[in-house]
């Protein structure tokens, strides 16, 4: 993809937070030297998978320009988020990079009716249009996600179920015809058949409208099903990245292997729940020196606990793990 033109480019993006409570005074790097690109004229579904607290939402908030990176760059059409000036440029960025949040209750104000919010979105992005046109845009977006104004009309967010509200928030996001959708766990609240219809919808948006999608999830099956490329994020680092099917069927990083093994198989009693999976207890893993996964990695070596493994690139795959090289010559 050497000469492809970048649409969205994330280069060594980094964001830290100060920790409170039990760890107060310490700093946690929620997103650490993360890089990836989406390309023009090659719409793509790029999945980011990782466990709770791995930095996914922080990364998505940076892509949405809701947070600025401490260092590194994030650019849309070669314009860096740091260098944007004026309300107009910022508004244009936000129109083109639209969010679908993890919790649809964050998208909708509880005091406003859902349909009015959709009309307001249409009017906000297409200020010259009439009320009827705004209505029509809202209806079209709702139909695309399997809802209708006749159904959500007049209702407040709490009067819709979680899944209905999530579909409404996908509808809201596609109203301004964005170039990139950043969907942060858009299907974690919906059932398998609706999940399929939402990810099929993403595929249609990609194929028919040319929208690229950053699909953040912990659902490996749908990521496998719709995405072209995937990154596995662990404690702020992309630990593995490459073509989705290769990464999920032949995971290299021990963390990716743990993820793939933990996915519940939908056949009765097929997954043993008894053997305690090696889930973490919290933020302290962020503070580890060296590879953040070493503390629960079955294959950890001494050097893993001493210094961060480098990115090891092999064709179109990247893995950040000493098992695959690095630091051996010393």
């Amino acid at each position: 993809m050497g000469d492809a033109i970048e649409l969205l480019s994330v280069k060594s993006a980094k964001k830290s937070f100060r920790l409170g409570g039990i760890f107060s005074g310490k700093e946690l790097i929620a997103v650490n030297e993360v890089s990836f690109s989406l390309f023009k004229d090659a719409p793509d579904i790029f999945s980011i998978i990782g466990e709770s607290g791995s930095g996914k939402t922080t990364l998505s908030r940076m892509i949405l320009r809701l947070l600025l990176p401490d260092s590194g760059s994030i650019a849309l059409d070669q314009v860096d988020v740091h260098s944007m000036k004026g309300r107009k440029q910022v508004l244009e960025y936000m129109r083109n990079v639209q969010p679908i949040f993890q919790n649809p209750f964050e998208t909708f104000n509880p005091l406003n009716r859902v349909d009015e919010f959709l009309f307001a979105t249409a009017k906000n992005f297409f200020p010259g249009e009439t009320v009827d046109q705004a209505r029509e845009r809202a209806e079209r977006a709702l139909n695309a996600v399997g809802l209708a104004l006749s159904e959500v009309g007049g209702r407040y967010p709490h009067e819709l179920s979680g899944g209905q509200l999530q579909r409404a928030s996908v509808a809201r996001a596609i109203i301004p015809n964005p170039k990139v959708l950043v969907a942060d766990e858009p299907v974690s609240m919906v059932d398998a058949s609706l999940r399929m219809s939402i990810v099929n919808l993403f595929q249609d948006l990609k194929n028919k409208l040319g929208t690229s999608i950053v699909y953040i999830t912990h659902d490996l099956a749908t990521a496998y099903y719709i995405s072209d490329r995937i990154a596995i994020i662990h404690r702020g680092f992309f630990v593995e990245q490459g073509p989705t099917s290769a990464i999920l069927t032949e995971p290299r990083h021990p963390y990716t292997q743990l993820l793939v093994e933990s996915a519940l198989d939908p056949r009765p009693g097929s997954t043993s729940l008894a053997d305690g999976a090696a889930a973490t207890t919290g933020d302290e893993e962020f503070l580890a020196i060296g590879c953040k996964f070493a503390g629960r990695c079955p294959k950890a070596m001494v050097k893993c606990r001493l210094s961060e493994p480098p990115e090891i690139v092999d064709g179109d795959r990247m893995v950040r793990c000493y098992l695959y090289g690095g630091n051996d010559e010393s």
């Binding site: 993890q102 974690s188 609240m189 743990l258 933990s262 996915a263 519940l264 729940l273 999976a277 889930a279």
Partner: peptide, 14 residues
């Protein structure tokens, strides 16, 4: 366990 990732989900259910 709907909002939890696969690893934590499996542990929580266990």
């Amino acid at each position: 366990t709907t909002a939890l990732d696969v690893v934590v989900q499996r542990e929580t259910l266990g």
